[in-house]
Simulated scan of single mutants.
Amino acid sequence: MSSPHAAAPYYFVPGPSKWPMAAGLSLLVTMIGASAWVNDVSWGPAVNIAGILATLLVMYFWFGDAIGESEAGQYGKRIDLSFRWSMSWFIFSEIMFFGAFFGALFYARTITMPWLGDLDHKIIWPDFAAQWGGASPAGTIDSFTTMGPFPIPTINTALLLLSGVTLTISHHALRAGHRAKTAFWLAATILLGFVFMGFQAYEYMHAYSDLNLKLTSGIYGSIFYLLTGFHGFHVTLGAIMLSVILYRVMKGHFTAENHFGFEGAAWYWHFVDVVWLGLYIVVYWL
Rank of each mutant, 00 (worst) to 15 (best):
D118E: 08
A173W: 06
S86W: 10
V38E: 11
L226K: 11
A104N: 10
W37M: 03
L213Y: 04
F102Y: 10
T110C: 08
I124G: 00
A207V: 03
L167H: 05
P126L: 07
H178F: 11
T140E: 15
S143L: 13
A201K: 10
S3K: 15
F224T: 02
P114Y: 00
I190C: 02
H121M: 12
L215A: 09
G232Y: 01
T189R: 02
H206F: 15
A187Q: 09
F194R: 05
L119G: 10
L27E: 11
S17M: 01
F92N: 04
A100S: 13
V29I: 14
K77H: 14
A46N: 09
A135L: 03
L279T: 01
L159G: 07
P16S: 12
R78M: 12
P149D: 07
A36L: 15
L277R: 01
D80G: 13
L242Q: 08
S170E: 00
S42A: 15
H172C: 11
G133E: 06
P149E: 10
Y11W: 05
I95E: 05
I223A: 04
V47M: 04
W19G: 03
K251S: 02
M147L: 14
I245N: 00
W62N: 01
S42D: 13
G15T: 11
H231I: 04
T157I: 09
L215G: 07
F184W: 11
F150Q: 03
M241S: 15
S70K: 06
V244E: 02
A22E: 07
W37N: 02
Y11L: 12
P151A: 06
L160P: 00
K251T: 00
S42I: 13
G51F: 06
S170W: 00
A8G: 06
F92K: 00
N156H: 09
E257F: 13
L213T: 00
N156C: 12
V58D: 01
I49P: 03
W85A: 07
L160C: 08
L279Y: 02
H121S: 02
F63R: 10
I49R: 04
V283D: 00
S136T: 13
I169C: 06
V29T: 11
Y247C: 06
L159M: 14
A50T: 03
P114T: 07
T154L: 04
L242K: 07
V275Y: 02
A23V: 11
V282G: 07
W132I: 00
S217K: 06
